[in-house]
Every structure is written in C-alpha cells, then in structure tokens.
C-alpha cells in the first residue's frame, strides 16, 4: 500500500504540486503552439501537393515532398535534438520556441498527409460536376471539395493532435521542464526517490488532457455531421 500512500503524499505536498504545475504549463504551451503551427503548415503543404502540375509549381511541390519525406522518415527525438543543439544553438534562445518549432514542423508533415488524404477521399465526380457547372477550379475546391473533405479529416487530425501532446514528453531529453521532467524531478534523490509513483501521476495528467481534447473533437465532429443522413 506504499504506492497509494505515496500518491496521496504527492498530491498533498505543495512543493510537488508546484513542480507538476510548472511542467504542465510547459507541456500545454508547447502542445498548443505546435498544434497551431502544424495545422497551418500542414494545410499549406497539402494545398501545394494537390495543386495541378504546372511549370512554376514544380519547385514548391518538390520542396513539400522532400519536407514530408524527411520529417516523417526520421525520429522525432533526433529532430528535436538537431533543432536544439545545431539549428537554434544560440545563447539564451528560448527553449519553448525551439520545441514549438520542432514539434510544429514535425506535426505539419503528418497533418499535410491527413488533409491530402481527406481531399482525395472526396469523389472525383464532385470536382467534375463543379467544373461542368462552370465553376472555377479554385471555387470548386474551396466550396465543394474542402467542406466535404474536412469531415473526413477531423478524426485523423484529432489522432495527430493526441500523438503530438504525448510526444512532447521527449522535450525532457533536452532538459526542458515539462510534465515528464516534473515526474523525473519529483522522483529524483532529494524528493521522493522513486520514479514509479510520480510517473503514474503524470500519466494521469496526460490522460486528462487527451480526454478533454477527444471530447472537444467529438463535439466538432457531431456538429459537422449534423446534416448527414446516416
């Protein structure tokens, strides 16, 4: 029963809760900013990738393809490490920004593929019909294809956001004070001197964040599907 008494001890000690609060803030800041950056970047990259082949579009298309390949093909931990110790290795560069950029760029590649998949999932007949009615390519995409695509994309974007939040736990690798680092600190020699209890408690915090997010995504999905006859 030492386990449960230690959980109570952790929750009732102000010092430990301060540490968790500090870590929670970092985790939330990085997750939210990186998610926004990822969505923005992902949308842009997806739009470039699905745009029709033409002479001058070759260059951005190639860049986007390389971006998605490299980011999805290398471990996140390695990307974070390179960002922290090579790219943004400036004195006093805010590490939250380093992490936000690293995770945002990583997330962007996955979001881009999700959005691309969503757009491709809309039947080609929809585009053909729009074009046949005399709508421009742009209008067809923005008024007919994308509204239908969004519905298909939301679940996989939600998936990506959940993965992103949990993946931020690796920022403790570059010494950042996030939730996982909070658990390490509480578990270190001068505090509880055992990792099992603080790690479990922090896991509960991650679970709570992800649960809230899932709830939010469900609401959006329900709203978007309100008109569906199923």
């Amino acid at each position: 029963m030492k386990f449960f008494s230690q959980i109570v001890e952790l929750f009732s000690t102000e010092k430990y809760m301060d540490i968790i609060w500090e870590g929670l803030q970092t985790t939330l800041i990085i997750s939210v900013l990186a998610a926004l950056l990822g969505l923005l970047l992902g949308t842009l990259v997806a739009l470039v990738t699905i745009s029709p082949q033409s002479g001058w579009m070759m260059v951005p298309k190639a860049i986007c393809k390389a971006y998605v390949t490299i980011v999805r093909g290398t471990p996140m931990a390695l990307q974070l490490f390179i960002m922290a110790y090579v790219v943004f290795a400036f004195r006093g560069f805010p590490e939250e920004l380093t992490a936000t950029l690293a995770f945002g760029i990583n997330s962007g590649a996955y979001v881009a593929e999700n959005i691309r998949g969503g757009i491709l999932s809309v039947d080609i007949g929809q585009t053909e019909a729009g074009r046949a009615l005399g709508l421009t390519r742009k209008i067809t995409l923005s008024r007919i294809v994308i509204p239908q695509a969004i519905k298909n994309v939301i679940p996989s974007i939600g998936n990506e956001l959940i993965a992103l939040i949990k993946e931020t736990s690796i920022v403790s690798m570059i010494g950042m004070f996030d939730l996982t680092m909070a658990a390490k600190i509480i578990g270190s020699g001068n505090n509880m001197a055992s990792y099992i209890v603080p790690m479990t408690v922090v896991a509960l915090f991650y679970l709570a964040i992800v649960y809230l997010l899932t709830f939010g995504i469900k609401l959006i999905e329900r709203r978007l599907r309100a008109g569906d006859k199923r």
Binding site: I19, R91, I185, S188, G189, N190
Partner: peptide
C-alpha cells in the same frame, strides 16, 4: 552577458532540483 552553465540536476548534493 550571462554566464550560462549546463548541468544535469539529478546529481545531489552537487546539483538537484529543490522545488522548481
């Protein structure tokens, strides 16, 4: 301006976290 010192704060008593 600042002297930035890197450490690994899990090496009590030489460096460790007291609170934050």
């Amino acid at each position: 301006k600042d002297i930035i010192v890197h450490t690994n704060a899990f090496f009590a008593p030489f460096e460790y976290y007291d609170g934050t």
